[in-house]
């Protein structure tokens, strides 16, 4: 089981209120991603759940029991750190067995569980190496192995992929997703990368300045962002936000149109192409439209426009409307 509930959880460092007060329910078996810009308090929130930091006030419940004042080891959670935090002086085998040893498990049982975890993670051939002799991806797997052998109520991941190169990151992302499919254990995953959030999460929690901006499934957040912050944060390239007369036409203070919801060819807007990037599968262009500013456009396939071309644009998909407080209308 791994149901985690936060009730009015607050955290201050001196006068700095990192987390002014958060309520959140995480259901058993869910893959929840905390996402937000750096300094938004997402890592602090994870560390509060882990028990590595004290809450200033509020209650953290794990499976219905008050865990607010339990030490980390007693919460039944496992954590994968950004730097992997492997024990450099121990072999992979000993690294993975360490939490079991601390729990006082018999050596035979330890060995059995380590072998099983190693098999799942393709580490069987590396069990007698030390972390220093492994590649980044392998270290990452050892860190995950150390977490899964304990059969925790929930896994906590603190930006686990940020130290890997781009290619490896995609691979590990899929491996973690598959792991979640097979284990069906609650996972809480912290990242600043919205692509990771969108691809992995059952539920995304968007954080900004210590507050939850919105909670929802990836597609809910994509289609119906609650406010400008979420609208701007989810989606790549960023949503175009337009103020002024154009927005007033739609009876809003600001309107937002995703780059993939703009068509090139004919339309009401005309501008000059600035930057154009052609990837083959997609084309990204920036168009300077007088009165609207620079508009990002994403078109599938090849698009034969280049720097300096004069083109016309038209909105083809949903137009998001926001009021003067930035809230969706």
């Amino acid at each position: 089981m791994g149901k985690i509930q936060l009730r009015q959880v607050r955290k201050s460092f001196g006068d700095v209120h990192v987390i002014p007060g958060i309520d959140l329910d995480i259901e058993d078996g869910e893959f929840v991603v905390f996402v937000g810009p750096s300094g938004c308090g997402k890592s602090t929130l994870l560390r509060l759940i882990a028990g590595l930091e004290d809450t200033t006030s509020g209650v953290i419940e794990i499976d219905g029991n008050d865990a607010t004042h339990l030490p980390p080891a007693k919460r039944g959670l496992a954590m994968v750190f950004q730097s992997y935090a492997l024990y450099p002086h121990m072999t992979v085998r000993k690294n993975i067995a360490f939490p079991l040893k601390m729990a006082g498990m018999s050596p035979e049982e330890q060995e059995k569980r380590v072998e099983r975890a190693a098999k799942v993670l393709n580490l069987t051939n590396y069990l007698d190496r030390r972390p220093g002799q492994l590649s980044g991806g392998q270290r990452q797997r050892v860190a995950i192995g150390r977490a899964i052998v304990r059969e925790p109520a929930a896994f906590l991941f603190d930006e686990p992929l940020s130290n890997l190169d781009a290619a490896l990151r995609v691979g590990m992302r899929q491996e973690i997703s598959e792991l979640h499919q097979s284990l069906k254990t609650t996972m809480i995953y912290v990242t600043h990368d919205q692509v990771e959030a969108m691809t992995m999460a059952d539920k995304i929690v968007v954080l900004n300045a210590g507050n939850i901006e919105q909670v929802g499934s990836p597609l809910t957040l994509y289609h119906t962002p609650k406010n400008i912050f979420v609208a701007g944060f989810i989606g790549s390239p960023r949503m175009n936000l337009i103020e002024g007369p154009e927005a007033a036409k739609h009876n809003a203070h600001t309107i937002g149109i995703r780059p993939e919801h703009i068509g090139v060819g004919d339309g009401p807007w005309e501008g000059v192409v600035g930057l154009s990037e052609h990837l083959g599968s997609d084309s990204f262009i920036k168009v300077d439209v007088p009165g609207l500013g620079v508009i990002n456009v994403r078109a599938a396939g090849e698009l034969n426009v280049h720097h300096g071309d004069r083109i016309k644009l038209a909105p083809t998909g949903k137009i998001h409307r926001f009021d003067d407080k930035g809230l969706a209308l």
Partner: peptide, 12 residues
């Protein structure tokens, strides 16, 4: 982080 990992792993 390594010491925190140990704490998470249940080390006193």
């Amino acid at each position: 982080e390594i010491l925190e990992a140990a704490r998470m792993d249940g080390a006193s």
